[in-house]
Design a protein around this nucleic acid. Sequence first.
DNA 1: ACCATTTATGACTAAAATGACAAATAGGAC
DNA 2: GTCCTATTTGTCATTTTAGTCATAAATGGT
Lengths: 185, 185
Amino acid sequence: MKTLTSGEIAKYCDVNLRTVIRWIDSGRLKGYKLPGGGNNRVKEEDFLAFLQDNELPIPADFQSKETRVLIVDDELQVAKAISRVTTRAGFKSVIATDPFMAGALLTSFKPQLMTLDLSMPGVNGYDIVKFARHDYDDKSLKILIISALGEEQRQQALDLGADMSLPKPFSNKELLNTIESLLVK
Amino acid sequence: MKTLTSGEIAKYCDVNLRTVIRWIDSGRLKGYKLPGGGNNRVKEEDFLAFLQDNELPIPADFQSKETRVLIVDDELQVAKAISRVTTRAGFKSVIATDPFMAGALLTSFKPQLMTLDLSMPGVNGYDIVKFARHDYDDKSLKILIISALGEEQRQQALDLGADMSLPKPFSNKELLNTIESLLVK
DNA sequence: ACCATTTATGACTAAAATGACAAATAGGAC
DNA sequence: GTCCTATTTGTCATTTTAGTCATAAATGGT
């Protein structure tokens, strides 16, 4: 859990330290005091809530950083190829070559986009889509199906909640266009 | 009885180690010194009391009282049998029947104990142990291998970082004893 | 016994809290 | 616009608390 000092907040808000302390004392900004002699600390989440409530500009440090992409493909070559494209496009990319890693990275890395190979041995890609849509809390996650399987199978994944599908093989340009169309905000 | 070092407390409170030592020296935070050269230890209960007394935020690790158990087994019957035992013993139990769920639940449910079936089709249990020990941040996670495979395979998992192993089939009593021995604080 | 990591300590520097007071700002009334 | 007033914010000096650094010691693991 990250916390901020009154001085840090003063810099972020471009106000005097004295003012921040008064905000905290008056309860406008939620904080707590260290045992020592009462130095203030504010939880990052409370600070962000404070900024939002008062419609203050959000400092760059707290802007949601780079867009994250999780690449799920058991063929490392393919995964790396995708990763090159996404990384070059400015996304932070992580590769999962087995379903366990995929699950672990989905809930810890929290990507905005997941590319998913449907035809992984021993894995049911449909179940992954189902999980992401039913048991996973970030509904804004974009799922891009990448598969050598036929149109029918890819459509089935879309029906389950995937956002788009791309047949293998694909060109880098196709891939990039598809991803960027999914990630427009 | 679980104890904390000054460094751990520093991290939990997001404060410098030096400051924690001063809190202890001044008596604000109750602790005791090891015989060696005076390294500090603080009882978990004293730390929690300290947090409460000073209205400090309680770290996530100390939030939920209940101990969480993740059961990874593709055979739902077996998983449910384990779940019955752990639930009855007072643990909060969750079942993952495929590796993707297992990964997702490990990093979101954040169990203190994971039971792991080595012989799941299409999944390499060893990779899961490796992931948990190398790429997962909670090193205090206990891993209990449950497998019908031979002693040798189970030993291999232990070598990779699992904490204990139990051959299939097992009695409820064996299971419970093993789990509780892993979770003693 | 050895090593890497963590912790303790003192001295010092940096940062924060506080009160009193000055300056700036916002909103009304004219 | 000007004047007035209430509220908020900034400044300053001082005291207290927290962080940094270097070094020595202890701890944990192999």
